[in-house]
């Protein structure tokens, strides 16, 4: 059973065991517009919660993707480097950014659940 949590910067983290799959939400990709470039970290990089983990760019906007939790980057999605459009087409699926080995699961509880995030998004627009 996987569980998905959200940040106020519109990243999601889908928890599968010790590992969290991180990407940007459908709302975020819509706000950015057509994604044209992503910059991913190297696997093995250790990131702190809230630190810059990746960069995502559209034609007119650029955003940092922050690590929702602390941990080590264990994998990155090379496919979105070649096909950045995947981030728009399938942000929660093929458009994922990176996998983090979660250091402290307690940090997850500081993030929003699905319902809270949906409420947060409606307050944004």
């Amino acid at each position: 059973m996987s569980e998905t949590r959200y940040t106020k910067d519109h990243e999601y983290i889908r928890v599968e065991g010790d590992v969290g799959i991180v990407g940007i939400t459908d709302f975020a990709q819509g706000q950015l517009g057509d994604v044209v470039f992503v910059e991913l970290p190297q696997a093995g990089k250790v990131v702190a919660k809230g630190a810059e983990a990746a960069v995502v760019e559209s034609v007119k906007a650029a955003s940092e993707v922050y690590a929702p939790v602390s941990g080590e980057v264990v994998d990155v999605n090379g496919a979105i480097e070649g096909q950045p459009g995947l981030v728009n087409e399938d942000p929660a699926g093929k458009g994922w950014f990176l996998k983090i080995k979660i250091k402290d699961k307690a940090e997850l509880s500081e993030l929003m659940d699905e319902a809270a995030y949906q409420a947060f998004v409606s307050s944004c627009s």
């Binding site: 057509d34 044209v36 470039f37 760019e57 559209s58 034609v59 950045p84 459009g85």
Partner: peptide
């Protein structure tokens, strides 16, 4: 007409 800026950047 409008130009495809996504294509230019990708």
């Amino acid at each position: 007409r409008r130009l495809d800026e996504t294509r230019a950047a990708r």
